[in-house]
Design a protein around this nucleic acid. Structure first.
Length: 502
RNA sequence: GGUUCCGUGGCCGAGUGGCUAGGCUGAGCUCUGCAAAAGCUCCUACAGCGGUUCGAAUCCGCUCGGAACCUCCA
């Protein structure tokens, strides 16, 4: 029996608005597509939250023995800023400003994005396709949509005919909109517009003379519209219908709505079984975004070099902080919350290094009550994660487990009194949930052999003076180390350990 | 204006009909030469008003407050 059978996953499907049992198209296999970044600028913390969400989801699905293919794209064609017809290509604009080739812009910010992912211990997807590498496929699907009568060409641009599509399907199925309301509200079509209806969206745009990113097509030189790349790449690598499509809440409309329309129009079937949207990171209750000027760059966060921050926080602290809330809720970013997260994470992290060194030598005097309790805790981790990837609830259980680990370490609870199989499961679950599922590794310290050896010398020295009851000197050693950020901890049995504080 | 979501104890944040969330902070206790760490205990809430129900933070209605999307955004 696979773990995913023992702990069946339920997840919130944005399409139905309800929590549903997760049943994959092919038993044992999961295909997941997540909208990645547009690489025209530095990625900020709000962006990280979405990728963290799907990192955790893919990690957990693998942990419970699914075979996962995770595809996350890089958008390296400029989406158009402002209005879809007259806007400017973000990558092209940035390239002109910095006097670089568009691909230099793309390269720079892709590297930056990857480095941020690494810092937060967000694993790379299995496939990371780029839009520019799929121009031909995008042209092909546009042709197909024209042939099907779902798209029309005007002056070298091609638009999706939403009204036509809506005759046989429901445009707005994901975001709960209907086409009449959409046509009534918002911007009016002006005389310059090529679109038949304002709800129509571009599949292919003719490149203006100054537009630098351009490719030849049956309709002249141009570039693909915003939405089509995701449809092409998800279909190519995951099939016409796949299990999970993820992304930030702000992509629900129009981006994902358009994806559904294009793909359904072209292939005659709904592209996605479960739509999953992660919610926004907020600052003082407002969405963190570049345009609002309230975004944080990773470097600012780690160093604390930001007007709103009192100090710096480690990547793992931030990761833990984000996992303390459910991905579908907004999460507010503040100093207080980060401070609390730092301390909380430290507790879990300490327990992690402790349990790694805890082993059961022999089994004696079985405490069945304790055994039962520990078995239940391990079980709860899986149940909580399988319940819509509830990392907040899982962390609550891990805190319980951490307390028990401390008890085992201090001897308050006897490690040998636990049933062998239960101890093994308890240990592997704590370590597995922390490191593999939640991606919470121990913070990388400046720890190395030289430092460790030096501290051991001091520890041995201090043991000697303590034995001699020279407390003045032993306190001095401890205080002086503390002053440079090394905390000595005296154990019950005269053992000493240390911890490097950041 | 349209669509949708949220309002939980000092702070952050789970929970969607009956059963302890959890973290941080604060107070006390235990252990310790003293600390630190750790363990234990306490402070116990669901914006307001009304309704449904044997029973509601949880369902329904209204009021107040906040947010997201409808333009690019994760």
């Amino acid at each position: 029996m696979k773990l995913y059978e023992k702990y069946p996953v339920h997840l919130s499907n944005s399409l139905s608005g309800e929590k549903e049992k997760f049943e994959t198209i092919t038993p044992g296999f999961v295909g997941m597509y997540v909208c990645g970044p547009t690489v025209y600028n530095y990625a900020h913390l709000g962006n990280a939250r979405t990728f963290l969400t799907f990192d955790t989801i893919s990690r957990y699905l693998r942990f419970i023995e699914y075979k996962v293919r995770y595809v996350r794209n890089i958008t390296d064609v400029g989406h158009l800023e402002s209005d879809a017809d007259e806007g400017e290509d973000k990558i092209g604009k940035k390239a002109r400003l910095e006097q670089l080739e568009p691909m230099e812009i793309v390269k720079r910010y892709t590297e930056d994005f990857h480095s941020m992912m690494r810092q937060f211990n967000i694993l790379p997807p299995n496939i990371e396709p780029t839009a520019t590498a799929h121009i031909i496929e995008q042209i092909n699907i546009v042709k197909k949509l024209i042939d099907l009568g779902l798209a029309y060409e005007v002056n070298g641009s091609v638009y999706f005919d939403v009204k036509k599509y809506n005759q046989s399907h429901h445009y707005g199925i994901l975001s709960g909109r209907n086409i009449e309301e959409l046509m009534e509200s918002g911007r009016e079509l002006d005389s310059q517009d090529e679109k038949r209806e304002k709800v129509d969206f571009a599949l292919w745009k003719k490149a203006s003379p100054q537009h630098i990113m351009r490719w030849p097509s049956p309709w002249g030189e141009g570039f693909p519209g915003w939405h089509i790349e995701c449809t092409v790449m998800s279909t190519k690598y995951l099939g016409e219908t796949f299990d999970i499509h993820g992304g930030g809440m702000d992509l629900k409309f129009p981006h994902h709505e358009c994806e559904i329309a294009q793909a359904t129009g072209a292939n005659g079937r709904a592209p996605v079984k479960y739509w999953v949207h992660s919610n926004m990171l907020t600052v003082n209750g407002q969405k963190m975004s570049k345009s609002l000027g309230n975004s944080f760059l990773p470097a600012e966060l780690f160093t604390g070099n930001h007007p709103l921050l009192q100090k710096g926080y480690s990547p793992m602290t931030v990761r833990f902080f984000m996992l303390q809330s459910h991905y579908s809720s907004t999460l507010d970013f503040s100093n207080e919350a980060l401070n609390a997260a730092e301390k909380g994470f430290k507790k879990l992290s300490n327990a992690l290094s402790l349990i790694k060194n805890l082993n059961q030598e022999k089994q004696e005097g079985i405490n069945s009550e304790l055994s039962k309790q520990l078995a239940l805790l391990a079980d709860e981790c899986f149940k909580n994660m399988s319940d819509d990837f509830n990392t907040a609830k899982t962390l609550a259980v891990l805190f319980e487990m951490a307390s028990r680990i401390n008890d085992l370490k201090s001897g308050t609870l006897k490690i040998n009194s636990i049933e062998k199989i239960i101890f093994t499961t308890f240990k592997s679950t704590y370590i597995g949930m922390m490191e593999e599922v939640l991606g919470l590794t121990e913070d990388a310290s400046i720890n190395n052999n030289l430092v460790d050896g030096t501290i051991q010398v001091l520890i041995n020295l201090r043991k000697k003076v303590r034995a001699d009851k020279n407390f003045a000197l032993s306190d001095k050693i401890r205080d002086d180390l503390k002053a440079i950020g090394i905390q000595l901890k005296d154990g019950k049995d005269g053992e000493m350990s240390y911890e490097i504080e950041n």
